[in-house]
Write a protein that binds this DNA or RNA. Sequence first.
RNA 1: CGCGGGGUGGAGCAGUGGUAGCUCGUCAGGCUCAUAACCUGAAGGUCGUAAGUUCAAAUCUUGCCCCCGCUACCA
Length: 531
Amino acid sequence: MDSKKTKTFYITTPIYYASGNIHIGHTYANVVADVIARYKRIRGYQVRFMTGSDEHGEKIQKKALEAKMEPKAYVDKIAQSFKEVWKAMNISYDYYVRTTDESHIACVKKVFTKLLEQGDIYLGKYEGWYCTPCESFFTDAQVGEEHLCPDCHRPVHWEQEDAYFLNVKKYASDLLEFYQQHPNFCRQDKINEMINTFIKPGLDDLCITRTSFDWGIKIDENPKHVVYVWIDALLNYISALGYLSDDDHLMKEYWGEDTEILQLVGRDITRFHVIYWPILLKALNLRLPDQVLVTGLLVTKSGVKLSKSLGNAPSPYPLIERYGVDSLRYYLAREMQIGEDGCFTPTQFVDRLNADLANNYGNLVNRSLSMINRYFDGVIPEYHEPIDDLTKKLFADVKEKLTIYEEKMNDFDITMGANAAMELIDLGNKYFDNIAPWTQAKNNNIDLLKESLYAASELLRIGSILLKPFMPTKTIDALDQENVPDSLRTFDSIKDIGKLGGIHIGTLSPLFPRLKKDEEIKFLTDLIDGK
RNA sequence: CGCGGGGUGGAGCAGUGGUAGCUCGUCAGGCUCAUAACCUGAAGGUCGUAAGUUCAAAUCUUGCCCCCGCUACCA
């Protein structure tokens, strides 16, 4: 059925601003992307998964100054620290893009020149309320009626400077048409919000250069101008594919018409990815992504966004050390409803890990394999067609959950995908209770004992395969304990029921130790309240 | 009337016309293979509020109250 050509899939995360440390809010988006990337890979896609860092701008220049470092040295350090987090989080990105990469800089300059030549960029005046001591422009809303600087509270004055603008007005109608023709481009409520708030009142041309600082990409045509964040950061998605470079084979491969392109963005940067980025692509006569998936943000209980500047977001490291990376990944993927804001709370964290991972998945692995040890000296019984109705029903139910899992995952609803996998595992607990293998053993009903433990072995194998994208290491651990051969660990092998008989299982150890609720809540609360 | 999302048992959510459901928590029972786990059952909701449409509304209409996000060059 499948075409001979391998399907390609390009997935990107936001690139994070290199001004501080990564916190769990950032890790959330990358976990979502990683789960999707891993899922696509096991479904046979040729995947390119990219993340990176945005390393230019005034703020970074200031930060570097404070740290008494050259900006480049400063961002080198930050980028390195980001990569370390992604390594610790098991983020399987294929490429890490930095906006200070030579190739990126070259691409941005070429794009600027191209757009200037074709008339989509022009030189104009940028106007706004200017605070001289802060060297910053502010909007009407920011300065308020008093016309005071929102940072230092001193008076601001109306000021203008030369700046280049991107002619976005010209593309507004094209964009609206695109939205209409591609209802899956982005969630409809977000699109409506964008249309009503920004497009309908009339889009203003976007100011894309600054002269007030110089840590950025200087344009060849007028080097006192540096490219401001929009054009610089957004282009990462294609500069990293070699757009306009001598070697653009990746661009052809992953930004071609046949590629499925998924871009993850946080809700806070929706506008740039749903309005300006598509316009930029249209101006460059390039295709648009298939979908911009807006993920929610992690917020505190009172609804405040977790952020670097507020300092209210824990680092992922203590969580990884204490609970293991897979637990954190699972929690983020499962607890946060994708697309909705989610709230990191100690109670929910502990409850979720105990309920799903320790009590359900981990415990089922343990109890199933323990029985195989106890009753069959660690050898999985041979398969035969199920005789007992309960076993028949179990296999039917497994199939049903599997279908739901696929549906949800194909829609990138990883929250419900994880849920379906967990429900599949949970079938095993009810099945055991109904069959009561321990009773069958006492009654010497060996056939049913064998049938039930074989069924459980398959259930664990399938469940572990489904959970692989979420928990790449613990699922391997589970499959190792069951000693499943590599050939039966692939997604495609899920349908190969009946091949586990005769396997001598491995050494058992609890996958996820049950957490002591009070202790862990205290630990987590202290962590959030500031170390 | 700026735009949009939302108010469902203790917590988090599903549910777009026809006996109000899920997960966690709580309580009671069961089981003993397992990580004090697992299974079963129970308690607990007038579905923000007021009115309307309908044989029938959490679900449609309208008013009101409350929470949240966005409101433009702040990543």
